[in-house]
């Protein structure tokens, strides 16, 4: 076997690929499922917290700031390990999937809250005054006048942050979630061959290249608004 053959045998081995393709496909769908649940819950959480904070109820504000600070300062992997390995000792046991979903939702919620908040604050005071002068309530002004404008500004940073956080689903492999990376490394150690890693890489490219390109498009599409 020459070097090239050996390289193909190790990285693009058709027998190994055929055998482990189904498990990588499973991992692909699990990653998608996990990512979608994180995106929906995390952005909703961030939006709700930002809205609560705009009501300016000081003690609650401080709690939200504390939460957002902690979750932005701590590495997600530390939280995942803490939730997965440590919480059972106080009687709280969650599956790896739940732990990763919960952690990344909380992290995305913290970042999204800050981004929405910055967007709301950036809207000119005159918009509030104009709306309130016509009799709209604080909440009506927030929903109908301020948020639609704020969301435009928040789309690019929120998109980028969301993409970065959904990629953290790979951390699930550390706590036994059967997502792409976990399936790929498991298959690699069973087969003693690197081909499953190539399959895993292909799965990530398939999933995230469109997302990254979409993020780039969003950046340019909304660029005019960031002056």
């Amino acid at each position: 076997m020459n070097d090239w053959d050996r390289f193909v045998f190790s990285f693009f081995n058709s027998d190994v690929i055929e055998q482990y393709l189904p498990s990588i496909v499973d991992g692909f769908f699990l990653t998608c499922l996990l990512a979608i649940q994180i995106v929906v819950a995390g952005i909703a959480l961030g939006l709700v917290l930002a809205l609560i904070r705009s009501l300016k109820f000081t003690p609650v504000d401080l709690l939200i700031v504390l939460y957002a600070d902690l979750l932005r300062a701590l590495p997600p992997l530390v939280l995942i390990i803490l939730f997965y390995f440590a919480l059972p000792s106080v009687g709280i046991s969650m599956s790896g999937f739940t732990v990763v979903w919960l952690t990344l939702t909380l992290v995305l919620g913290a970042f999204a809250e800050e981004i929405f908040r910055a967007g709301i604050v950036s809207i000119d005071k005159g918009q509030w005054q104009a709306a309130r002068s016509t009799g709209l309530t604080h909440i009506q002004t927030l929903i109908s006048v301020v948020l639609p404008q704020a969301i435009r500004i928040t789309v690019p940073p929120l998109t980028n942050r969301t993409i970065a956080i959904t990629k953290n689903t790979a951390l699930g492999s550390v706590v036994g979630v059967g997502e792409i990376l976990n399936q790929a490394t498991t298959a690699q150690s069973f087969s003693g061959n690197a081909s499953p890693l190539m399959l895993g890489a292909a799965a990530y490219l398939l999933l995230f290249i469109p997302v990254v390109v979409f993020g780039r498009w969003i950046e340019t599409r909304f660029a005019w608004k960031r002056q």
Partner: peptide
């Protein structure tokens, strides 16, 4: 106050139209 503000119109220096 919101009900009363209907009866008091206000026009601002910087217009403050909703841009969206």
């Amino acid at each position: 106050i919101n009900k009363m503000r209907q009866r008091i119109g206000m026009v601002f220096q910087s217009f403050n139209l909703y841009p969206h």
